[in-house]
Simulated assay, not measured.
Amino acid sequence: MMVDNFKDMALQSEPAAQYRIIESADLFRGTNEIMIRHDGLVYRLKITRQGKLILNK
């Protein structure tokens, strides 16, 4: 089964409380690129012109 929209995906094997869904608009707040610090390293998360997400170290 192919799922086009993650929030429509049924996670039947796991309780819903284990997953936290954050809207990308809440992360990006009108920009196309954000920096994320994880474990002492900085990553760049970018929205492409096609609306895809790219994560770079």
Rank of each mutant, 00 (worst) to 15 (best):
M35E: 10
N32S: 12
Q50Y: 13
A16Q: 11
I47A: 13
L53V: 02
E33K: 14
D4Y: 04
M2F: 12
Y43R: 07
K52A: 11
M1P: 10
P15N: 02
A17Q: 07
M2C: 10
E33P: 01
M9K: 07
P15S: 00
L11P: 00
G30A: 02
L41R: 14
L41C: 14
Y19S: 04
Q50E: 15
L55P: 00
D39M: 12
L27H: 03
K7Q: 07
L45V: 10
A25L: 03
F6G: 02
M9H: 01
G40V: 04
T48Q: 11
M9F: 06
K57D: 00
D4W: 09
N32K: 14
S24P: 00
N56D: 15
R37P: 12
E14Y: 12
A17M: 00
I34L: 13
R49P: 12
I34Q: 05
D39C: 08
N56K: 13
Y43T: 03
L45I: 06
K57T: 00
M9C: 09
D26T: 10
Y19T: 02
I22L: 08
F28D: 04
G51N: 14
F6V: 15
K7D: 03
N56W: 00
V3A: 02
Q50F: 12
A10Y: 03
R44E: 08
D39S: 15
N5G: 03
I54R: 15
L27D: 01
K46N: 13
F28I: 01
R49S: 13
F6Q: 08
M9Q: 02
L55E: 07
L45A: 13
S13C: 06
Q50W: 13
A25M: 06
V3I: 06
Q50C: 08
L53R: 07
I36H: 01
F6H: 07
T48N: 14
L53M: 13
F6E: 05
K7P: 01
D4E: 09
G51W: 14
E23I: 01
I47P: 06
A10H: 04
D26Q: 13
T31W: 10
Q50V: 07
S13V: 07
T48D: 14
R49Y: 13
A10D: 07
L45H: 03
D26H: 09
D39E: 13
V42W: 09
D4I: 05
L45Y: 00
K7L: 02
E23H: 08
M1E: 12
G40C: 07
F6K: 05
R44G: 09
T31Q: 15
G51F: 15
L11I: 10
I22A: 02
D26E: 15
I22T: 11
Q50R: 13
M9D: 01
H38W: 05
H38T: 09
K57E: 00
Q18R: 11
T48W: 07
E33D: 03
N32V: 04
A25N: 05
N32G: 11
R49C: 10
A25R: 06
V42A: 11
K7T: 08
T31I: 12
H38E: 09
F28M: 08
S24E: 04
R20P: 00
E14D: 14
Q50L: 12
R49K: 14
M1V: 11
R49T: 12
